[in-house]
Design a protein around this nucleic acid. Structure first.
Lengths: 136, 136
DNA sequence: CTAAACTGTAACAAATTTTATTACAATAAA
DNA sequence: TTTATTGTAATAAAATTTGTTACAGTTTAG
């Protein structure tokens, strides 16, 4: 669940990267992403918690990158927004009386972890700076 | 969106693998997964469309694997249930007047494709038979 | 030193998506 | 020819995500 958060975070981070030495307001970010400023602020709280951005309150407040874009790996962004295993998970508990039902969650979790490792390895090869460079 | 389908499909396929030379009803599958039989049937329709299972209608009907478990790659299962890019996607159109907003969807899509390739490569190394062997 | 422009946060509402339920025609075996 | 089962549609309920409103707290600019 909760898809779309990676996109939103990447959008925020890219905009911040494009505004060095500036403090960007949630309103401005929301205008580019086209979502509600409150959602932006919530997402920023999360990014801050993971050490990717910093914010300043009060008038002419806003956010900025907590470290150089070259040092922000996209795998860090993924990990910051990650909530569930990539391969999903059962919401209902499978039947424990069934030999398959009894164990499937564990095996699917293991599989998900392996797949996630492969993803993170791939994402870890790109930095925010690399990503940002793609924009003309 | 729609997570949980990979788990459900894997559960179905594992149960079918564990019942060779048998035809398994949606009711029985639903009982192990602990979801509604109609959902199982819908998921089976999808798996059938992708050539992974076959079904028989009428009394003592049900489903069975369309080919040996050794020939079913978990990447095929993923592709069968795949609906959206792994990294998610924006629901709102970003602001086209913003240089970042204008291009971000394209760049995120490209990134998602690369990441998905890494995932599929990993998943392609395991067959349904391998997965099923993990169950005692 | 006060008004203005922000962030942080909570509470709630709306929209969307997922999951469940009910119902029944069609099919095929017993 | 009755019974168990799939296929499928329609609808309802539940869960999740997204949006909105409101406002206290903070900081800076004038």
């Amino acid at each position: 669940m909760n898809n779309g958060r990676f996109s939103i975070s990447m959008h925020i981070l890219t905009l911040l990267e494009k505004s060095p030495n500036e403090v960007v307001s949630s309103e401005l970010l929301a205008g580019s992403i086209n979502i509600n400023p409150v959602l932006v602020r919530k997402e920023i709280i999360n990014l801050r918690k993971h050490g990717l951005v910093e914010s300043r309150e009060g008038k002419s407040g806003g956010s900025y990158l907590a470290k150089p874009a070259k040092e922000i790996l996209l795998s860090e962004v993924y990990e910051a927004v990650r909530q569930n295993p990539v391969l999903g998970q059962n919401k209902n508990k499978p039947n424990p009386k069934c030999p398959v039902g009894k164990q499937i969650d564990k095996h699917l979790d293991n599989l998900s972890i392996e797949v996630e490792e492969a993803m993170l390895k791939k994402l870890g090869k790109t930095t925010l700076a690399d990503f940002s460079k793609k924009f003309n």
